[in-house]
Design a protein around this nucleic acid. Structure first.
Length: 432
DNA sequence: TCTGGGGTCCTAGGACCC
DNA sequence: TCTGGGGTCCTAGGACCC
């Protein structure tokens, strides 16, 4: 029988920060979203004193002060580097590997019949902690959904020693009886309301329902979850493949009613989308742009603008994506509103190696020149740090056009950001 | 004053064709 | 005036994940 292991970093962002701040071990710590908006990661201690996920920071500041909670702005550069190290160790230790998110990976434990899987998991978790400082929980079971349940037990009960294995039907049933249905992987808030409304409270209650009823009420996705809970492996392992849509969006640090203010942001989001496309060797045919006012300010007039542009020839050149995004912005911008959020999405993505050119106005010379330019810019930005070179339209001018122009990465609030201990030389020096 | 940022898949319903 | 039926494709919206 094939077993799956899910390896999941405990309070990932918080743990990354604590590796370099061991004085914060055992203390309540949170990490905030962009612009120091909401709580997006909490240490166990922060959870215990009742800090909810997604809570706006400004509403919690008093509680933070009185409970001595340490808050960090998000430092994605640090988290990306730390989790990559963790993933490298997991990949090395497992016959099959599939990264699932920034802090989780599935292992396919084929050909490990002679191994004691519980010991294997405990050893892997120990090794990762020793080599990187990252605490990791591991759940192992014959299906991915059951492995996610097991992982939950590994996280919540120290007695499991960071690894929980479900390898008999007895263990499966026992686990499901203790497992709230709302926490099952694949059952979200809406389904939870529906299920609890009819007296289904545990994963076991759900798994005992007739299959046909489940399919009727929760469609094929619910049926798959039901099958998995009952021990039938049916959620396919996603191979690493190119994304089908790429989105770059942000809340703005301050509301703006000016077209030029939005223009700089949208240029940067579009340029970032183009970079992401090139990184996965893709091109897109549709560029979409949206802008929104602040939905929390009911006292202000509200507006949401959204439109898209179709490229005659699919592309990933920064200049092309930015040009089209700005045309979209012109079409949806309305005067008299104060905008708080904007984003660029690229879709209809295909492989850059097989571009279908249009034969009406395709200019091969220009096309090749732009791609050569992007190649050089990507290389320079990789060596010199992102945004060493940007388009003029991406540059933020300082207040009143005076002083040093700001970069995209500085255009969001991050007052509480830790140093990039592992990736930036100046920050590495700071690391004692 | 301050409220995140990405993704995927599925379904229903409309448009369109013969 | 009366207005079929079956198939496909596309899109918007809903639901889920981290």
């Amino acid at each position: 029988m094939t077993f799956y292991a899910i390896c999941d970093c405990d309070s990932c962002y918080v743990s990354c920060e604590r590796v370099f701040r061991p004085d914060l071990m055992g203390k309540p710590v949170v990490v905030l979203s962009n612009n120091d908006g909401c709580v997006v990661a909490r240490s166990r201690e922060a959870k215990q004193i009742g800090i909810p996920m997604g809570m706006p920071f400004f509403k919690m500041q008093q509680q933070f002060a009185s409970s001595k909670v340490t808050a960090f702005s998000s430092n994605y550069e640090l988290y990306a580097d730390m989790t990559q190290r963790v993933m490298d160790i997991i990949r090395e230790a497992s016959p099959g590997f599939c990264r699932y998110s920034i802090d989780e990976a599935f292992c396919i434990l084929d050909g490990m019949d002679r191994f004691n899987l519980k010991e294997w998991g405990e050893e892997l978790s120990r090794k990762i902690l020793k080599w990187t400082g990252m605490p990791v929980s591991i759940g192992i079971a014959p299906t991915k959904t059951l492995a996610k349940c097991a992982d939950r037990f590994a996280k919540d009960y120290p007695g499991y020693n960071h690894c929980c294995l479900i390898d008999t039907d007895e263990k499966r049933q026992k686990a499901l009886r203790l497992f709230p249905v709302k926490e099952v992987w694949g059952i979200g808030r809406r389904h939870q309301e529906h299920l609890e409304g009819i007296g289904i409270n545990t994963a076991f209650d759900f798994a005992m329902k007739p299959r046909l009823w489940v399919k009727k009420e929760f469609h094929v996705t619910g049926e798959r979850t039901w099958l998995e809970l009952n021990g039938t492996d049916c959620i396919p392992m996603e191979e690493m493949r190119a994304k089908k849509s790429i989105c770059t969006s942000r809340s703005l640090p301050e509301m703006t009613d000016s077209f030029d203010g939005l223009r700089t942001h949208v240029s940067n989001y579009a340029a970032r989308c183009a970079e992401k496309l090139r990184r996965q060797h893709s091109v897109c045919q549709t560029v979409m742009v949206f802008i929104e006012t602040n939905r929390f300010r009911e006292d202000l007039p509200q507006y949401e603008g959204f439109t898209s542009a179709v490229l005659l020839t699919p592309d990933n050149a920064t200049q092309v994506i930015v040009h089209n995004a700005l045309n979209c912005l012109k079409a949806i911008f309305r005067k008299g509103y104060r905008y708080k959020r904007a984003g660029v999405i690229v879709t209809n993505i295909s492989d850059a190696a097989h571009i279908q050119t249009n034969f009406i106005d395709f200019d091969a010379g220009r096309f090749n020149k732009m791609h050569l330019l992007d190649k050089v810019i990507d290389k320079i930005n990789k060596q010199g740090g992102s945004e060493t070179i940007v388009l003029a339209s991406q540059q933020y001018t300082a207040q009143g056009g005076q002083g040093k122009a700001a970069h995209f990465s500085d255009a969001i609030k991050h007052d509480l950001r830790s140093p990039c201990y592992t990736t930036r030389w100046n920050d590495i020096i700071k690391c004692k």
